[in-house]
Design a protein around this nucleic acid. Structure first.
Lengths: 130, 130
DNA sequence: CCGCATCCGAATGGATACTG
DNA sequence: CAGTATCCATTCGGATGCGG
């Protein structure tokens, strides 16, 4: 069973966006942010408050990345007379929603096999990994 | 829809191993290596040759991490009279196999939505992400 | 309210040479 | 064959201050 015809060479992997998707899943906050904005729309600071331990800079970058990839949509709702943005809403796109069940399945797998993972790590006696 | 009851605070996320699993999926070569050794057993240099663009150092670390987490098993098959390891085999564990369908589903999603992703990225006009 | 700019330390990815 | 040792570039995550 190879990774569903996903080619092995670097260039080919770059051609299809598989590794990009994997990278997005691996980013620390992407999945969590995506799951929140799939539920309802959020403002920027609202997300900042909702997620403990996430700094604004990282939140900005996470949202920008998700937006660039078409998983999240950013809508400017209010602009002051100076031209400053006063209200923004983030929401998951249909594309983003379609990805969510898959990463949720991953999360469920992790919860189900938590004990296995813990035991494996406890039993590991080889050389330090890093 | 929140991430299946996966708690939001940092400590709680650390408690369950969800983020560990996500991180493993996000690692550049883990999934590919796992998919190979799920098919049949491989030796170290055999994997090195099979995957273009992967250096030995990274391969070592990837394998060690997968081994530590119980997704891959390392078996020493041959040792010289000097004590040097001469033959090693890597194979996916049942735990590793059980994870594979999920990441394959992710890969399939990526292939299916490749066009969407490309178009989104091409259409993106916001500030540079990094 | 919604960010961006700057600075930093840590982790990650990679090339290459060497060893038992 | 199966790694380890070095060294380096890039990226990631985070803290904090400033600005429209």
């Amino acid at each position: 069973m190879s990774l569903v015809e996903v080619p092995v060479t670097t260039e080919q992997r770059a051609e299809c966006h598989v590794s990009d998707v994997m990278a997005r899943v691996g980013e620390r906050w992407s999945v969590l942010v995506l799951s929140l904005v799939a539920d309802r729309t959020y403002g920027f600071n609202e997300l900042d408050r909702a997620i403990e331990g996430l700094s604004r800079r990282i939140l900005t970058r996470t949202l920008r990345t998700l937006e660039r990839d078409g998983l999240v949509q950013r809508s400017v709702l209010g602009v002051s007379h100076h031209g400053a943005v006063e209200r923004v809403e983030y929401a998951a796109t249909p594309l983003g929603r379609s990805l969510l069940p898959l990463v949720i399945a991953l999360g469920e797998w992790a919860v189900e096999h938590e004990t296995d993972l813990r035991e494996a790590q406890a039993a590991y006696a080889g050389p330090p990994v890093r």
